[in-house]
Design a protein around this nucleic acid. Structure first.
Lengths: 337, 337
DNA sequence: TTGAAAGCGCTAACAC
DNA sequence: GTGTTAGCGCTTTCAA
């Protein structure tokens, strides 16, 4: 691989001139620039990004740290980030923490040591510590929840979404609504539970702890939770499930138990699914603008990298309730019509 | 952020000694090593990976270049790669090419310039050129198809899988089997079509070009293809769909057309889906060991990085036909029982 | 066993 | 407008 020195030698100029040409050619006499560019093309020279990174103390890489790469929510966010980043010549390094605080901390160390330009993070838990990054001047944008007063954040309104979904279930004929939420200490999980609880209390229904379970945001967690709830002496007639992968587990548990959806148990999930309209019954979900969330996060980050020094900004999206068949009990639906 | 010089100064030793301690402490007197380590811990020093990368002309990063991050196949492969890579202290940089040769070429340039240790690539098309990487001594492992005699490859047997799936459809009562495959020039797409064709010809059925369509490996492509086929004067009574995202499109088109599955049209998809058992009817698919494919690719790559110089190796997995409801016509099923 | 010093490839003062 | 040169932080001869 050619280095800048070889190009300089071949073109009969200094490395500084080559560097200038590579970086836009400002302050280089056009004729010379053209000649140098010719040599660059001829050799197929590309600047060594590692050397440039060392010299500049910054790279053109932004990292995206997500909790679960197998969740369509995050992959869509990722596309949003990537498209926006590319427009500003950043490449995106994706790190998957598997919802583990340890893995997350490991990645943050590596990212800091790699001098990434900035980090977009969907923090694993409330104990997540991004000072590793911020203390070295690496900009951070949070997805999902606020990490601090000075850290930009893009999120959707989990609280309102959960409240609306639960109210919807109650309005459409459910009397005993359960909630399966994510892990303790995870902001989105807690907020969604809180929204559920608020809707329950607004409806003057006594909150029943038996109908609430913290699970792991994966299929297996909600599968077990749903099985338990269905075997209760007084089982729920509706379940609000706090993310999309858990919805799959709940659906599977209902199927296996021979429980009819929505007539015996209604179902609403948080986060849409690409196939939510293809099941029988189709699934009512809270849709979030996933791509836009990613794009907004990247935009905020790029602005920081371009020198923006405003205090921590926050972009909040409203989830949209997409009503499908899984939440409309027959009797209630008839009643409504 | 502390540098090696500051640590050296604080410990009263040379940077060489600090470097030795950081890298395992061989050849350093144990007492000294301990003292230096104390200072390192006290300062929270972590070596600058960019500087190390420049000096070593190699980083501890491997890149995974995939065609479609929204495809569960790739995300699962990704997890396999990541877990295997982490065990050898590599971090994984994920690049999504969107099935675009241009994006792919751009990423390969960047990766080369970043001196990544190695690249695992699911090449976008047959024109993919990895010499950018190999000419700089960067090891490459291909996923999906062989990129050259010296390049390791991990793939599943698309040809056999497609043949089996098509034969299965014919055995279970279909007479006019269609095939929706991926883009022209994409190896997996061509091989799956070829396997389909072989099964058709083995069954002494005349190959009908009307029943074959190249689409884009996404929902919308197969949606359009399915609509066209269903409106044919002599429509198919079964469709073999060459990947999982396209299966969704086919399913949706059948639903909208009011076509009953499997009795009017049977369906089989290549690649399993996390929810293939949850639709009504459930979907017959060819399951590939996705996680293992990723893990195997990472293993091959790490071996190369550790000095393995064998000629190009190939690991081939056999897809498993998971028969569910979408491919068993009622009459035929009765007949079989 | 330890240290001095060169140099990885690049950019940006600064000098001309 | 162009060149000289220092130095980013690290590893690694080589000498002591």
């Amino acid at each position: 691989m050619a280095t800048i020195r070889e190009i300089a030698a071949a073109a009969g100029v200094s490395t500084a001139t080559v560097s200038r040409v590579v970086n836009g050619g400002v302050g280089v006499e056009p004729g010379l620039a053209k000649r140098v560019q010719g040599v660059i093309d001829e050799f197929g020279y590309t600047p060594n990004l590692v050397a440039r990174g060392l010299r500049m103390q910054a790279t053109k890489v932004i990292a995206l740290v997500i909790a679960d790469i197998e969740n369509p929510f995050f992959t869509s966010v990722c596309r949003g980030v990537e498209d926006a980043a590319r427009r500003h010549d950043f490449s995106v390094m994706l790190c998957n923490t598997d919802e583990s605080a340890t893995k997350e901390a490991g990645y943050l160390d590596i990212l800091a040591a790699q001098s990434v330009a900035g980090v977009i993070i969907s923090a694993a838990s409330s104990t997540s510590d991004v000072t590793t990054l911020t203390s070295r001047g690496i900009s951070v944008v949070a997805i999902g929840r606020k990490l601090g007063p000075e850290i930009d954040c893009v999120r959707s309104d989990s609280h309102a979404g959960a409240r609306n979904a639960t109210r919807h279930l109650l309005e459409y004929g459910a009397h005993r609504v359960a909630c399966i939420t994510g892990p303790h200490g995870v902001a989105t999980a807690e907020e969604r539970l809180e929204g559920y609880r608020e809707a329950i209390e607004n409806a003057r229904i006594t909150f029943d702890p038996e109908l609430v379970e913290y699970a792991n945001f994966r299929e297996d967690g909600s599968y077990r939770a749903t099985r338990r709830m269905l075997s209760l002496a007084n089982p729920p007639d509706a379940i609000f499930v706090a993310n999309n992968r858990m919805l799959v587990g709940a659906l599977r548990a209902c199927r296996e138990a021979g429980v009819e959806i929505p007539n015996q148990v209604s179902l609403v999930g948080f986060d849409d699914l690409p196939w939510a309209d293809l099941t029988t019954p189709s699934i009512t979900t809270l849709r979030q603008p996933t791509y836009e969330i990613g794009a907004a996060a990247a935009r905020l980050l790029v602005e920081r990298l371009q020198g923006n020094r405003e205090p921590g900004r926050e972009v909040v999206f409203q989830p949209e309730l997409v009503v499908r068949e899984s939440s409309i009990k027959r009797a209630a639906a008839n009643f409504k019509n």
